[in-house]
Amino acid sequence: MNNIVEFVQDTYKTKEFIPLHEPRFTGNEKKYLNECIDSTFVSSVGKFVDEFEKKIADFTGAKYAIATTNGTSALHISLLLADVQKDDEVITQPLTFIATCNAISYCNAKPVFVDVDLDTLGLSPSSLEKFLDENCEIKESRCINKTTGKTIKACVPMHTFGHPCRIDEIKDICEKWHIVLVEDAAESLGSYYKGRHTGTFAKLAAISFNGNKIITSGGGGCIITDDEELAKKAKHITTTAKVPHRWEYTHDMIGYNYRLPNLNAALLVAQLEQLELFLQNKRELAKEYEEFFTNIADITFIKEPQQSRSNYWLHAVLLKDRADRDEFLKFTNDNGVMTRPIWTLMNRLEMFKECQCTDLTNSIYLEDRVVNIPSSVRI
């Protein structure tokens, strides 16, 4: 595996420790931060919040964007706006970051896990359809899980590592079964499926700007939607549901302190100015990785699915088996190249081990074999 370490070191032109994914601040970040500080508007009100919301909506093609403190809060509010309530069920994939299931749990709802597709790493339409056909029925325009008697209110597919899932097929299935589709697009800013940006297929979607994302403000997230009423409600309840008034403190519903500060928005406006360059750089890196791993036995570089254009947020390889995966992880990390395995399946975690699952053959296969490799934009 020495040749792998040497290739990564040569690619990043350093013999020092190479992290998995680190942010790049090479544009107007300091300038806009200073402007924000000088204005004294550093909290949730300020021109950069408004500017960021307009620019992220324009970039994705959504009509509205609502800036939030992080991607998890964006997903939480999206699920609330989808009317996910206590004891409802939400279908999602077990191969995801914990934030997906945490957001479902914040609504006092319960996840149901269906399998993923091997080529997209995202929720499988065939697994979803099979589960619904075998376990569910429509009663009074609601999807009822015959096993539990609970309402399946929503479905949350995730675009894993920025690779789009078959979101159009999932959407059609959800509409047939009266299930609200909410996209977890946390990792897929700059990714497209059939020419359309991820997150714009669903009624609501959440995007993350965490410190390891393709653009970042150290945190941050947003909700995107084409529904004006939902957009207004999202902005209202993420700002403590305060009724506008020059001095009175009146709140008309339970709200959340989820509004993105102007300081963070200033960073994101600067980062957005560089997003196209970041995306181009990542695609170039993906091409180099793909060519290199073509000549390496028993390791396959994971490419974007058909009919997709991925942002290649995190590059990943597929090893022969779990033993090879563990050997790869140990060797690379011991030699200064940070790699990490894909997430532990959600249904294996203590909090979700009692949740209903379909056959998870593909998820288990990927859990045993997928490793993320250094994916930072190169300077």
Score class of each variant (00 low, 15 high):
Thr239His: 15
Thr239Met: 09
Thr239Ile: 00
Val337Ala: 01
Trp343Gln: 10
Thr250Asn: 13
Cys357Asn: 14
Ile342Ser: 11
Glu276Ala: 15
Thr300Val: 13
Arg283Asp: 14
Glu284Val: 03
Arg348Phe: 14
Ile254Lys: 10
Ser308Arg: 02
Asp326His: 02
Gln307Ile: 00
Leu267Glu: 07
Arg259Leu: 03
Asn257Thr: 04
Glu288Arg: 11
Leu349Ser: 01
Gln280Gly: 09
Lys233Arg: 15
Glu276Ser: 15
Leu279Met: 11
Phe331Glu: 13
Phe331Asn: 10
Arg348Gly: 02
Leu267Arg: 08
Gly255Pro: 03
Leu275Thr: 05
Lys282Met: 12
Thr294Ala: 02
Arg340Met: 13
Asn257Val: 01
Glu288Tyr: 00
Phe328Ala: 06
Met338Pro: 00
Leu263Asp: 03
Lys287Val: 05
Val337Gln: 02
Thr300Ile: 13
Ala266Asp: 11
Pro261Thr: 13
Phe293Leu: 05
Cys357Pro: 00
Ala297Ser: 14
Glu327Leu: 11
His245Lys: 09
Glu327Ile: 14
Ser310Trp: 08
Asn311Gln: 09
Arg325Asn: 01
Leu349Gln: 03
Leu277Gly: 09
Phe352Ile: 04
Lys233Thr: 11
Ala266Pro: 14
Leu349Asn: 01
Met346Tyr: 04
Ala266Met: 11
Pro261Ile: 08
Gln306Tyr: 02
Leu272Asp: 06
Leu275Val: 08
Glu290Asp: 15
Arg259His: 12
Lys353Cys: 15
His251Thr: 08
Glu354Tyr: 07
Asp252Glu: 12
Ser308Pro: 02
Glu248Lys: 14
Tyr258Ala: 10
His245Pro: 00
Ala270His: 10
Asp334Arg: 04
Gly255His: 03
Asp252Phe: 05
Leu275Glu: 04
Arg325Cys: 05
Tyr289Ala: 06
